[in-house]
Simulated assay, not measured.
Amino acid sequence: MKIEGKFYEKYKDKIHCYLCPHHCIIEDGSYGKCKARIHEGGVLYSINYGEVTSIALDPIEKKPLHYYKPGSYILSIGSFGCNFTCSFCQNYQISQYKHQSTYVSKENMVETILGTKNNIGIAFTYNEPSIWYEYVYDMAKHLKETHPASSVVLVTNGFINEEPLRELLPYIDAMNIDLKSFNNDYYKELCGGRIQPVLKSIELAATSCHVEITTLLVSGENDNMEEIKKISEFISSINSDIPLHITRYFPNYRLNNPPTDKRIMYEAEKIAKKYLSHVKLGNIY
C-alpha cells in the first residue's frame, strides 16, 4: 500500500527526505536509497505501508533479546527495503530488493497478535524497520493504546534521525540495535552508512526502553580486539548493564570471507566482559 510519508520537505523541484541520516534529495519519479520511498509530483510516498513479506512466531532470544522477558515468544514481521547495503546481509532478498508482500492493516495485525497463542506482542525485524516507519509507528501506537500489556520490539541498524526516533520511542518496549563496528570506514565501505547516527540512536534509546546491542564479527574486517574494546567501552559509558551480543559471521550475499575464527570469538568475549555485565556469543555452536 502506498501512503504519504513523514519527515520530508520540498527542495526546489525535488524532495528532501530526512527520516534517516542519508538525507536523500530525490528527483521526481525516483526512489531514496532505501528503495521504499518514492517522490511523485512533489509528494514523498512510502510504498511498503502494511506490506508484510515475512511473519513468524520466534523465541525472544532470536531477536536477539536475552534479557527482555526471557523464555517468551513474539510475533515477528518484516517488509522490504533498507537504508543500508551491507555486503554480508543475511536477509538481502527482502532488504535489497522489492519482494512479494501481503497488505495487512494495523487492525488485522492486532487481531493476529492477540490471536497467536503464547505471544507477548510484535517485533519489527527481518528488514530495517525504520524505513517502514509510517506503518511501524501507526501499528505500535495503536497496539500500545488498545492493549498496553503487549510488547513492541524493534530490531534495527539504528540509522535513523533523532526526531523520528523520539516520536516512536514512547511506544517501544525493547530494541536490539546493531553496532556493526566502531570504525566509520567499515560503515561506509561495507554497509553504506555512518557510525555517528547509530551511536546517537543507542544513547537515546537507552534512556527510553530496554536495549541490547549486537555486533557481527566479520573475519578480516572488524574481528580485532581493539574494535571490541572500543565498542565495549562505548556501551559501558552509557550503562555497563546493557547486554552485548557478539555474533559469528558466515559468508553471505556478496561477501565471501571465511567464517569468523572461534578463538577470536572467545577472546572477544573475554575483552567485552572487562567492561560489560552481560556478554553473549551468537552463531558459535
Results as ranks from 00 to 15, higher is better:
Asn108Ile: 05
Lys10Met: 14
Gln93Trp: 11
Lys106Asp: 05
Leu276Gly: 08
Glu61Ser: 11
His39Met: 14
Lys229Ala: 06
Tyr253Pro: 12
Asp13Tyr: 07
Leu276Lys: 07
Met225Glu: 11
Lys188Met: 10
Leu217Gly: 10
Gln100Thr: 09
Asn118Phe: 05
Thr260Leu: 13
Ser201Gly: 09
Leu199Asn: 07
Val198Ala: 12
Pro148Ala: 06
Asp261Ala: 14
Ser240Leu: 02
Tyr67Asp: 01
Gly192Pro: 14
Lys270Gln: 14
Ser277Arg: 15
Ser87Gly: 01
Ser240Arg: 15
Gly29Met: 05
Glu221Thr: 11
Asn239Glu: 09
Ile131Ala: 05
Phe88Glu: 07
Leu281Pro: 01
Ile94Ala: 00
Phe80Val: 00
Lys230Pro: 00
Ala56Lys: 02
Ala123Arg: 03
Leu276Cys: 11
Lys180Thr: 05
Lys2Asp: 10
Val211Cys: 11
Ile122Asn: 01
Asn48Leu: 04
Lys262Pro: 15
Ser240Gln: 11
Phe88Ala: 04
Leu169His: 10
Gln100Cys: 13
Met175Lys: 08
His142Glu: 14
Pro129Gly: 09
Tyr8Arg: 02
Lys144Trp: 00
Gly41Tyr: 05
Tyr126Ala: 08
Thr146Pro: 05
Gly78Ala: 10
Met109Arg: 04
Leu75His: 04
Leu255Ala: 03
Tyr285Thr: 07
Gln90Phe: 07
Tyr103Phe: 14
Ile25Arg: 09
Thr260Ala: 06
Ile113Ser: 05
Ala36Glu: 02
Tyr137Trp: 15
Asp241Cys: 13
Arg254Val: 07
Pro170Tyr: 07
Ile246Asp: 02
